[in-house]
Amino acid sequence: MKRREFLKKSFKLGCSVGAYLAFGDQVKAFAADKKTRDLPFDLVAIKGEEPDIMFNRAIESLGGMKKFVKPNQTVVVKPNIGWDVEPERAGNTHPLLVKQIIKQCMDSGAKDVYVFDHTCDKWSRCYANSGIEAAVKDAGGKIVPGNLEKYYQAVDIPRGKRLTHAKVHELILSSDVFINVPILKSHGGTKLTISMKNLMGVVWDRGFWHRNSLNQCIADYATFRKPDLNVIDAYYVMKRNGPRGVSKADVLKMKSQIISTDMVASDTAAAKLFGMDPADIPYIGFADQLGVGSRDLSGLNIHRIVL
């Protein structure tokens, strides 16, 4: 009996050590909520120029990309590449912005910059026709498939109310830095898609979210791994018929950008920029309640730049 118990115990011990060795670097990822970054502003809003120029100015005012990316770190950039449409249709993040972010990461000494999205339309066509595949390759990043289940690892979301576990893309779990690059646009089920909604593209089973109170699930997932930086592209903005849009007639050229480490604050600001009351977007309220961030912009130090 003793011998058997010993074997059992050592097996269990072996398993836990093995698990730690296997997923140790992922544990590190959860701990990487860096409040201590010492940034001069909570949120930067900028308008009036091309996406790459605006990003350069905005990130500079936050102290530069080096505040976020340290030499030899791996970075995952998550734009919205959901649809097989060209950049002017405003269905996907502007390729110039994605390109500039990757360049800045590489200049800060990043080891690798990965880009992916779990797309809605056929992924290879989305990657190509959004212009993002070419932009990533130009800037020296790596564009990675996101539409195969093998890339997704099961995780728990302990603070989630409806969404308590999900399968998340392995690069989100293993990369040192996570930069979320959504596009601001209208959306059927949630009214607006911005930072938090963009994270739906890093999980495998989106149908579960739709079946189980979409807005709550979006807020639930936002409690998991927070992006280190959110860059909201509001250069071309789809004002209606989102998230796919019907034609260029749906698009307004707003030439704006919002940057923040706080998803709730940035989504609140972006909703106002869009011309909507943030209180009408349920997931912003849910996320605020869960403590993901702050929707009270009055308490924040906001830097506004008009070029």
Partner: peptide, 24 residues
């Protein structure tokens, strides 16, 4: 439809529709 059975937001159909033949 979950919007009617669960009374929660969804809109996956309208999201994917290229012509907005389905809208919310």
């Amino acid at each position: 439809c979950v919007v009617y059975t669960q009374r929660t937001d969804c809109g996956a159909c309208a999201e994917h529709c290229p012509t907005k033949a389905v809208r919310l």
